[in-house]
Design a protein around this nucleic acid. Structure first.
Ligand code: MN
Ligand code: MN
Ligand code: ZN
Ligand code: ZN
Lengths: 155, 155
DNA sequence: TACAAATTTAGAATTATTATTATTTAAAAA
DNA sequence: TTTTTAAATAATAATAATTCTAAATTTGTA
């Protein structure tokens, strides 16, 4: 925790108890929480925290590159507190999200005509497929839910 | 147009003038419009169309796999009427979106431990980088806009 | 032409996110 | 330690994208 506090103080990030609670929750977290997920968790330890503070803190962290956004769900923003670059697997039946820690950059050469006008900086892959549970139930359980609108669970 | 009408009638998609206007607008379109973009366009030719109809039609098309969703912008849903599978380039300065027609699937093998429980079906790559215009202006013009929240333009 | 089922529409409702502002507080200065 | 001040919090209002509702209309078919 000392490291955590030092780190943020150095970058001029004012540390409040609310923010510390959020930072502690996010540290080492490999899930992909929404602002609401985080809000609920933080309320357990800090019951008076407000939703606005969660949003403010998340935005501050995104601006500083400490947290990224995972763009997979058009309903709500999902955040990714895990710092190392990685890709994601998404179940097309139940919408669970998982991490893929493998760098494919060498294989991802853009066509020459695009490279003439576009300077790539980073890339991100979404692998869509069927998770273990959904393979078992053969898509029956979630088969009737609108795929594109279904809520996102986590692996 | 005859083919268009036939095609949808066959799959039991009831064709109204509103839907035809939308289908004509989307056909061969390689942009990534929001519901609002489409609504504005359709109103030009069909002034009494309602927003709900645009949303309804888009959802019907997505459900039938005729249109996909591009998950890049957490503010609004963007749709992709171009039928062939492809990837996208996104400018991190101005948020323009472009297409990449190249199949990388052979190079995108998932790690074995993931393949034990996840059956991949398809993949999608986002290439983030700097577009030609933004290279020219050196990021000054859009340099002060919040990257993650800026609106999306199109290539 | 008549019918049943699906679609359209306007407007209301919902919901995620952002903005406002008075109050509080962290951290630097004295 | 006390003071100071810029920044953060919290409650609430505002905004904006999307979905819902229900009555009227239209499509495709018999
Ligand atoms: Mn992740
Ligand atoms: Mn596209
Ligand atoms: Zn699943
Ligand atoms: Zn650009």
């Amino acid at each position: 925790m000392k490291e955590l506090i030092e780190k943020y103080r150095e970058i001029g990030f004012k540390l409040t108890p609310q923010r510390l609670a959020i930072l502690r929750f996010l540290k080492g977290n490999t899930s992909h929480p929404t602002a609401e997920n985080i809000y609920r968790q933080i309320k357990e330890v800090y019951p008076t925290v407000s939703f606005a503070t969660v949003y403010n803190t998340l935005q501050a962290l995104v601006d500083r590159g400490e947290v990224t956004e995972v763009t997979i769900d058009s309903q709500k923003r999902h955040f990714d507190p895990y710092p190392k670059p990685h890709h994601h697997i998404i179940c097309i039946e139940c919408n669970k999200i998982g991490d893929v820690f493998k760098d494919y950059s060498d294989a991802l050469k853009l066509p020459k005509n695009i490279l003439k006008e576009f300077k790539p900086v980073r890339n991100h892959i979404n692998f869509y497929g069927i998770c273990r549970e959904c393979q078992k139930i053969g898509g029956i359980k979630y088969g009737n839910m609108s795929k594109s609108r279904a809520g996102c669970r986590e692996f």
